[in-house]
């Protein structure tokens, strides 16, 4: 038998076309890839409308060949609300960073979740503002340095890291809230399964689903990719515990 016959044949990716502009080792690229795979697997590519954030992934639609909209910083949930209600047959996704979703757009995500809007949210928590050069995010850890917390985040100045899954878990409407990460192969597989579940919930018209993905920003954290994933695993998960918060 030829060795090549032993190598499983993977289908050509349709949605994810790769060659991203992200920094080496950045979680956005991995997340795009598994999101693309899930979309392919569910066979929904032509039905998807993805609302991009303003943040490093503002050009997500260059790498994910689906239809979509690039709105103002933080407003993706309002855009997605109208899209899904006007065209319920579409699969509507928002992809948002922690500045986008948990700072400037907190109102929009809270109300969309509270109304139980039938779209799915992919929320990338990398504890920093990547695109604008590493300022503090609402999710920045206590003591963590950023360009606007040069001596580390202090509670008396900036309060505590904001936990979105826990916050949304106080609402009645959401059906699925899970926090996953990408720090190793097993976590990536879990994240992939979570994405699939969130989208499947939408297909089955169950309700609002959000997957929070603990990710990294090696560039602004000033770490190597390996160090950054260790930081996610050892430090971030202490404040942002992984797991399912809601599954109805």
């Amino acid at each position: 038998m030829r060795v090549s016959a032993l190598i499983p044949k993977y289908p050509e990716p349709e949605t994810y076309v790769g060659r991203t502009h992200y920094c080496p080792g950045c979680g956005h690229a991995t997340l795009h890839k598994i999101l693309g795979e899930v979309i392919d697997e569910l066979g929904i590519r032509k039905k998807v409308i993805l609302v991009e954030p303003v943040g490093c992934s503002v050009l997500a639609l260059r790498y994910l060949k689906v239809d979509g909209i690039q709105g103002p910083h933080g407003r993706a949930p309002a855009i997605a609300t109208a899209v899904k209600r006007l065209k319920p047959e579409k699969i509507v996704l928002t992809y948002q960073g922690d500045g986008d979703l948990a700072a400037i757009g907190t109102n929009e995500i809270l109300h969309a979740a509270n109304r139980g809007e039938l779209f799915s949210v992919i929320f990338v928590n990398n504890a920093v503002y990547g695109m604008t050069g590493g300022q503090m995010a609402p999710t920045t850890l206590i003591g963590q340095k950023s360009t606007t917390t040069p001596t580390g985040r202090m509670i008396e100045y900036a309060g505590y890291p904001l936990r979105i899954c826990e916050l949304l878990n106080t609402l009645d409407a959401p059906v699925y809230l899970e926090r996953v990460s990408l720090y190793d192969v097993e976590q990536i597989a879990r994240a992939r399964a979570a994405l699939k579940k969130a989208i499947t919930n939408q297909i089955e018209k169950k309700g609002f689903s959000l997957v929070e993905v603990l990710s990294n920003c090696p560039t602004n954290w000033k770490m190597t990719p390996e160090e950054s994933w260790r930081f996610v695993k050892e430090e971030m998960t202490k404040i942002f515990p992984l797991g399912i918060f809601r599954d109805r």
Binding site: V51, R75, T81, A82, N107, E108, H111
Partner: peptide
Amino acid sequence: MQMESELASINAVMGGASI
């Protein structure tokens, strides 16, 4: 829809117009 703010309203309009 009565939205949560004018920000949300205009962005919902953007969503609807985009499709």
